[in-house]
């Protein structure tokens, strides 16, 4: 049984139902193989235009979206603010209107301000994909993490997942917690009190721990988060060495987790801070699987959104 994808945009996980997530993951599963063919390109989105609009630094997400568009034969254009009119003081509204006049089908946006993609979706007549906004959401990261977990564990339902580290600044943690709760996962958050927001447990329906060990107990999946040095002030953390000693993931610390527990990191990694290099490169690590999954998941998102072209979207739909 299949149906058209029901959303004009992908702005956050909150807007999606379990059924939507499964549809994206199943589509990604079928597209995964394209990147391993001798000819890594299919003609599906020929004639479609995708603009990647990045207001924040990014290597993997931007490259991943660019390859995803190109492997589907869409014309993909990258715009980073460092080399654009934004440097000359152009407002987000004017950038939207200027780009809109070029008739893109999909705009992929990363922005430092939470809610910026929603604003763009309201002001442009095309589909919008959130590639990370402030501390709010990073839906394609949560989807590619779910894809990686499902491939490794066979299912998402009921898994015990520990998300460790700088939760406060992490849109990855927020989107992942939302998605995993949709599938009834037991989500445990572990981080220093200064880096976990006060009402996180209630807001996301997860358990919060101030030590690693209880969160890792019997875990199927362990996710490390990057310490976001660019967003961090001195007051929140005494020192990186101190942090590594109490919250850094290592093979030893994982003793309480399941024997076949996998270790994930959204990248880029601070080796020796939130994750021990041996663990990051070891057999439990699926960090590079996450990167490969990213291209397939983003192909799926572009494919499903482009297919909705019939109904010219004017704003975000769904709750």
């Amino acid at each position: 049984m299949t149906r058209p994808f029901r959303h004009p945009h992908l702005l956050d996980i909150t807007s999606l139902t379990t059924e939507d997530v499964v549809q994206i993951l199943d589509t990604a599963e079928a597209l995964f193989e394209v990147s391993r063919r001798p000819v890594r390109k299919v003609p599906t989105l020929r004639g479609k235009t995708v603009i990647n609009l990045f207001y924040e630094a990014s290597t993997r997400t931007r490259t991943s979206f660019e390859l995803a568009g190109k492997r589907l034969s869409a014309d993909t254009v990258n715009m980073s603010t460092a080399s654009s009119s934004v440097k000359k003081g152009e407002s987000l509204y004017d950038t939207c209107k200027t780009l809109e006049a070029m008739h893109p089908d999909i705009v992929v946006i990363r922005h430092g301000a939470s809610g910026a993609p929603h604003y763009v979706a309201k002001n442009m007549r095309c589909s919008v994909v959130n590639a990370g906004d402030g501390m709010h959401a990073h839906p394609t990261q949560a989807l590619l993490d779910a894809f990686t977990i499902r491939r490794s564990k066979g299912t998402l339902a009921g898994l015990k997942v520990a998300i460790c580290g700088d939760v406060a600044h992490s849109r990855v943690a927020r989107s992942n917690a939302r998605l995993l709760r949709l599938f009834g996962c037991d989500v445990r958050i572990a981080g220093p009190r200064t880096l976990v927001p006060k009402h996180f447990a209630e807001a996301f329906d997860v358990s919060v721990y101030e030590r690693l060990e209880p969160a890792l107990d019997d875990a199927d999946v362990v996710m490390a988060l990057r310490i976001q040095q660019e967003r961090l002030s001195q007051a929140l953390l005494p020192s990186l060495r101190e942090y590594a000693r109490t919250f850094g993931l290592s093979e030893d610390r994982l003793a309480g987790a399941k024997d076949d527990a996998i270790v994930m990191h959204p990248g880029p990694m601070n080796r020796g801070v939130e994750i021990d290099p041996e663990l990051a490169d070891g057999p439990r690590s699926v960090v590079l699987d996450q990167v490969e999954a990213g291209v397939a998941v983003r192909m799926a998102v572009l494919y499903l959104l482009a297919g909705d072209a019939g109904a010219a979207p004017t704003g975000p739909r769904g709750a």
Binding site: P4, T27, A30, E33, P43, T44, R46, G47, Y303, G307
Partner: peptide, 22 residues
């Protein structure tokens, strides 16, 4: 082979966007 990605109407109409494995 699954032809979903190669349909000549893939980018205009997707009443059934399901892609099977090739």
């Amino acid at each position: 082979v699954d032809i979903a990605l190669y349909r000549d109407d893939a980018a205009t109409a997707l009443p059934d966007p399901k892609i099977g494995p090739s």
